[in-house]
Design a binder for these strands. Structure first.
Lengths: 257, 257
DNA sequence: ACCTGAACACCGTTCAAGT
DNA sequence: ACCTGAACACCGTTCAAGT
C-alpha cells in the first residue's frame, strides 16, 4: 500500500483507504484536556473556543461537533479536574472500614484538605461556582464518597447532606478568599519583594484604612508584612476545627455496622 | 531609582481619586446604579459596557471617562450592594454595647443571615469571587464592623480575623451552592411544577444516579420532590450552628470592657 | 471637561460546503 | 462522519475629533 497520508493527491479513489472512524483528529477528551491546560495557564479569561481550537490545530467551529457550547466545555473541564481528588477520598472511605472512633475526624480533614489543594491548583474552578451544580461522573462519585464517609462516621441519615455541605462549603469559601487575597499581593509584587510591594503600592491607602479601622488595618498588613499563604492556612484550620467540633457534637453515635 | 508608583495602571478603583465635577450627563454613581440594575435583571452575562451605556443613553466609550475598565465597574457595583447589609451589621455592633453573655451568638447569626439574604438578592455577587478582594468603603466598613462585633464578643485579638473568616466563608460557600442548585431547578421547571419538572426533565439520569449512588440519589431528589429553598436553609443553619459551637469553645472569655 | 463615532482586535455560535 | 471557512451579532477598549 503506497503512502497516501500526505503528499500528492491519490490518482484514484481505490488507492486511498477509506477513512477509518478512528482517525478523527479531535475527541471530546482531547478538547477537554486542552481546555484544562489553557485554564491552568491563563485562567478563565484565557479560555476561548478559538484558542482551544488553535491549540489543537483545528477550526473553532469543529469543536461544536463534540461539545454544544462553551459552558458545556467548562462543565467537562471542571469534572475532569475533580477526578484528581476522587482517588484520595475513595481511599479514605474504603481502606478503613467502619472507621475506628476518632478516625473519622482525620478522614474528614484529609478530604477537606485534598479538595482545598485541588482548588488552589486550579483556581479557575471557582469562577463558575454559582452557575450550575456539577453533575459529572467525578462530581457525583466524589459527593457520594463524602456521604459514605460521613455515614460510616456515625452521622444520621437526615444529616448526611448537611454535614457534607458544611465542609465543602467551607472549603469553597475559604479558597475563594485565599485566591482573591493572593492575586492582589502577587499581581502587585510580581517579581519584587512579594508582600512588601503590595504594601508600598497601596501607599497611603493602607495607612488611611488602618487609621479609620484599626482592627482591619492589622488584618490587611498595615502593621507589617503578611504572608497570605500562612494566614490562609491558619484561618482554614481554625474554621475547620470549629466545624469538626460542632459536627462531633451532632454525630449520632458509633458506626451502624 | 525612578518612582515606581506611577506608570502601571492602578489595580483598584479605590486607590484612584474620582475626577472633578462639572456639567455632565454621566457620573460614576449613575453608571454604577445602572450596572447594578442590569446585573440584578440579567446576571453577569447581561452586563456589558455597551448595554450600560445604552441604558444611560450614551456611547460606550464615554463610560471610560469615569471608569477605566469593566472590572473596575464590577468592583464598584459589588461595593454598592454591600452597602445594603452595612446598616444591619453596624446596628448589631453599636446598639448593644459589650454584648451580654449569649447575645454575641445571635448577633453573629444575624450578621450571617443578613449577608446571606443580600447575596441571594444579588446572585451575581458570587460570580467574581476569586478575582480580587473588595477594598471599597462598604466592604471595609463591613469587615471592620464584623471584627468589632467579635472583639466585644470576647474573642482574642489574634483570632478575630480567623473567626470572622469562618463565618463569611461559610456564607459565601453556602450561598454559592444554593444558587447553583436553584438555577438548575428553576431553569428546567421555569413555569411548570417547579421542582417536579426538574425531576422529570432529568429523566433516566436521576434514576441511574440513585441506582449507583443511593445516598446521593436521595439528596438529589430521586426519592421525591425536594424544595431547594427549604433544604438550603436547613443546611445553612446546620453548618452555622456547628461553627458557632466551635467558636464558643474558642472564645477568650467575657468582653474586655 | 466631557462625550461621540469609528475603529481594532477579539468573542461564541451557526451553517453551507467540502471531504 | 467530521471538519473548514465564512458569516453574524456581539464584545472591551482606544482615540481622534467634536463641543
Amino acid at each position: 500500500m503506497p503512502s497516501s497520508t500526505s503528499g500528492e493527491p491519490p490518482f484514484s479513489v481505490w488507492l486511498r483507504p477509506e477513512r477509518a472512524r478512528r482517525d478523527r483528529r479531535l475527541s471530546r477528551e482531547r478538547i477537554v484536556r486542552a481546555a484544562v491546560a489553557l485554564l491552568d495557564a491563563e485562567g478563565v479569561r484565557g479560555l476561548s473556543m478559538r484558542r482551544v481550537a488553535a491549540d489543537l490545530e483545528v477550526t473553532a467551529g469543529s469543536l461544536y461537533w463534540y461539545v454544544t457550547t462553551k459552558d458545556e466545555l467548562m462543565e467537562l473541564a471542571m469534572d475532569e479536574v475533580l477526578g484528581e481528588v476522587l482517588g484520595e477520598v475513595l481511599g479514605e472511605v474504603s481502606e478503613r472500614g467502619p472507621a475506628p472512633e476518632g478516625e473519622w475526624r482525620t478522614a474528614l480533614e484529609r478530604m477537606a484538605r485534598g479538595q482545598r489543594a485541588m482548588l488552589l491548583r486550579h483556581p479557575w474552578m471557582l469562577s463558575d461556582l454559582a452557575s450550575q451544580p456539577n453533575l459529572g461522573p467525578n462530581a457525583l462519585a466524589l459527593a457520594d464518597a463524602g456521604l459514605r464517609l460521613l455515614a460510616t462516621a456515625g452521622f444520621r441519615d437526615g444529616e448526611l447532606d448537611a454535614a457534607l455541605a458544611a465542609i465543602t462549603d467551607h472549603v469553597v469559601g475559604a479558597v475563594a478568599a485565599e485566591i482573591s487575597w493572593r492575586t492582589v499581593t502577587e499581581r502587585t509584587g510580581a517579581r519584587a519583594g512579594g508582600t512588601a510591594d503590595w504594601r508600598e503600592r497601596a501607599g497611603g491607602f493602607l495607612e488611611r484604612v488602618a487609621e479609620e479601622y484599626p482592627l482591619l488595618g492589622r488584618r490587611l498588613g498595615a502593621g507589617g508584612p503578611v504572608d497570605p499563604g500562612a494566614e490562609s492556612e491558619r484561618r482554614f484550620a481554625y474554621a475547620l476545627g470549629c466545624l469538626l467540633d460542632g459536627l462531633e457534637a451532632r454525630r449520632g453515635g458509633r458506626p451502624p455496622a
